[in-house]
Simulated assay, not measured.
Amino acid sequence: MHAAFVHAFGGPETLSLETAPDPAPGDGEVVVDIAATAANFVDLLVIGGKYQFLPPIPFVPGKLPAGTVSAVGPGVAGLAVGDRVQTLAEQGGYATRVAVPAKDCIRLPERMSFVEAAAMALAYDTAWFALMERARAKAGETLLVLGATGGVGMAAVQLGKAYGLRVLAGVSSPAKAGLATDAGADGIVDLSAADLREGLRRQVYDQNGGKGADVVLDPLGGDFFDAAVRAVAWRGRLVVIGFAAGRIPTLKMNYVLLKNMEVSGLQVSDYRKRTPDLMRHCYDEIFRLYEEGKLHAPPTTTFPLDRVADALVTLRDRKAAGRIVLLPAGEASSRIA
């Protein structure tokens, strides 16, 4: 097989494209011929040695590849050669094949392509857990999504609408508002507006009958978190998903006390490890809503595996709208609307 290996932590250019022996399935495992794997921001952290969970070197990065089962090991029931699956593999996706525990494979809907599956993986399950498990969102509530045009943000906008919430999308500039409204947002909050501290709350109140948001999902952190805390409703819930803005914020607990609000965090990989049944339920819901036409994959740019460094640089430099997906068997880059 072909794979991109990490032999020393560093930037995208340190990845080494190599030929390696094909994996063989062990007890309870299947081998999956990988058709598509998303490039995620977390991959840059793993490759750079900056993530909290790091595999031993050398390793092949790439989370949650999608593909076709090509071999089945002893003790596997319920999967067969030829099954199209979404895997929950924590690494190994930047390759043409990977061995995965059968329990970490979920069959794809018939009409979902591998590119769609990869583009939705990690973003839509993260958004689902933030919205439905951590925030316990309910139909009729108002949801504010920060970073609404990012992978997790766009997924959260779609999921919020699918579950009957009113969705306000926080965008980095008015030019990106169309992406959020196309995903279903009911209103736009301009995060580039002057005086973010007061301006964010004012925009939320103006669009929500003079009240704050019942649920806030924050993948940004930094000044955006500081401003969003002020826009949370009484008994509201704010979920911290990440710190894409760079600064890890702190919180004055008087806001929590006076608003009777909750602030929680989400590390979604823990759910894959600790609550596999709940993770499977999450994907059942995502696939159900996809088949009902309530969810769709975001705009996607694809790269062949031999251009993995280019793909990661494009991701790092925020030069692609929507998601970036690697095609291990692909030969050319393309953009899929």
Rank of each mutant, 00 (worst) to 15 (best):
A3W: 01
F5M: 13
V6Y: 05
V6M: 00
V6P: 04
E13W: 08
T14V: 06
L17M: 15
A20W: 13
P21C: 02
P23L: 00
A24M: 13
G26F: 07
G28W: 05
E29R: 03
D33L: 12
A35S: 13
A36F: 03
T37G: 03
I47N: 07
K50C: 04
K50Q: 15
G62V: 00
K63M: 14
P65W: 01
T68L: 05
S70A: 09
P74Q: 11
G75M: 03
A77K: 10
A77N: 14
G78H: 10
R84F: 12
T87L: 02
E90A: 15
G93V: 01
G93C: 04
A95G: 08
V98Y: 07
A99D: 05
P101I: 03
A102H: 07
D104Q: 15
C105G: 04
R107M: 01
P109C: 07
P109F: 02
E110G: 14
E110S: 14
E110C: 11
S113N: 01
S113E: 00
F114H: 10
A119T: 02
A121K: 09
A127D: 06
A127L: 05
L144R: 00
L146A: 03
L146K: 07
A148M: 06
A148Y: 09
M154D: 14
A155F: 10
V157R: 00
Q158L: 04
G164A: 07
G164N: 03
L168Q: 03
V171A: 02
S173E: 08
P174A: 00
P174H: 08
K176W: 05
G178E: 13
G178W: 11
A180D: 00
G184K: 01
A185G: 04
A185N: 02
D186T: 02
G187L: 05
I188E: 05
D190R: 00
D190E: 02
A193I: 02
A194V: 07
G199T: 00
L200Q: 09
L200M: 12
V204R: 06
N208A: 09
G209W: 06
K211H: 15
G212H: 04
G212K: 04
A213S: 07
A213N: 04
D218K: 06
D218A: 01
P219Y: 08
D226G: 07
A227N: 06
A231C: 04
R237M: 12
V239K: 10
V240N: 11
I241M: 09
A245K: 10
K252L: 13
Y255L: 11
L266N: 13
Y271R: 04
P276Q: 03
D277M: 11
L278Y: 14
R280D: 15
C282E: 10
D284W: 09
F287K: 01
L295D: 08
H296N: 06
P299M: 07
T300P: 10
T302S: 11
P304L: 09
L305H: 06
V308A: 14
A309Q: 01
A311H: 15
V313L: 11
D317W: 07
D317R: 08
A320S: 13
I324F: 06
